[in-house]
């Protein structure tokens, strides 16, 4: 890939919140991401689709600092280089992530799960002496309400159903109050009604000036979101645009149907 900008030039002053350029990751010769480039604007919601092995999860791993890219730039929020930071630092910058498989703290109560996710000072010394403030309590109640878990607040998270765990994780994401939300298959295992509710919730979050990246297989859900769609294939962008444009793209059809 050739670029006219010299390598040591200052980060491009783009309006984007997240900026990926030429990101490549390989595992023992297999290229999970191949020169991937992507930009997310502040307040934008983006849906990412793509067949298995397209690199969706690896892309999230790169953004959140779990995986270091071999080459390429990953910039966030006016030029912070994410490739130099670890997971905790990236999370504190304001990037929240919901995993494909719901991961909550099973031996904590629902309330404590949210409490631990609430935005605040994460340094050990501060956490040791932290007391739950009134403001935090209010926020806690609010999030429990949104996630529909008020009745469950004292139950251990391990005892929740799969769908409830999904909601709890979304609630934890809300509690983090991040600038960018990365949401991996949020509606897997949800009923239709819950799926609709989730779509509505994500739209509301996005409208409140948060950027959201949703990875999802469920086309009905993606359609319900009604946002710009990026289709990944073999680690790079195959097509980008409105859902109807993308789903009519012959290459996308070929990739999905294997023709």
């Amino acid at each position: 890939m050739t670029t006219l900008v010299p390598a040591d030039a200052p980060a491009p002053l783009t309006p984007s919140l997240l900026y990926l350029d030429g990101v490549t990751v390989s595992f023992d010769g297999f290229r999970a991401l191949n020169e991937l480039s992507l930009q997310i604007a502040p307040g934008e919601m983006r849906a990412i689709i793509g067949p298995n092995g397209a690199g969706k999860t690896t892309m999230m791993d790169v953004i959140t600092g779990k995986t270091r890219p071999d080459t390429g730039e990953v910039l966030f929020d006016r030029g912070v280089d994410l490739t130099r930071l670890d997971e905790a630092a990236i999370a504190n910058l304001g990037i929240g992530r919901k995993f494909q498989k719901p991961t909550v703290f099973e031996s904590h109560t629902v309330e404590d799960n949210i409490l631990l996710a609430l935005k605040g000072d994460r340094r050990a010394r501060a956490v040791l002496t932290a007391r739950t403030s009134d403001q935090e309590t209010r926020r806690l109640d609010e999030i429990l309400e949104i996630a529909g878990l008020t009745a469950q607040r004292h139950r251990l998270a391990g005892l929740l159903s799969h769908g409830q765990k999904q909601w709890l994780e979304i609630g934890m994401l809300l509690a983090q109050d991040p600038k960018l939300l990365l949401v991996d298959e949020p509606v897997a295992g949800m009923t239709d009604a819950e799926t609709e509710a989730t779509a509505a919730l994500l739209k509301r979050i996005s409208a409140a000036d948060h950027s959201v990246v949703v990875v999802e297989h469920d086309m009905a859900f993606v359609r319900a979101l009604g946002v710009k769609v990026t289709c990944l294939h073999e680690g790079s962008v195959l097509a980008e645009g409105a859902i109807d444009t993308v789903s009519e793209n012959p290459r996308v059809i070929e990739v999905y149907l294997g023709r």
Binding site: T64, D86, A88, R122, V127, M172, Q176
Partner: peptide, 10 residues
């Protein structure tokens, strides 16, 4: 790793 992604320096 979930704890890390919440921003805690494990």
């Amino acid at each position: 790793s979930r704890t890390r992604f919440l921003g805690y320096r494990v």
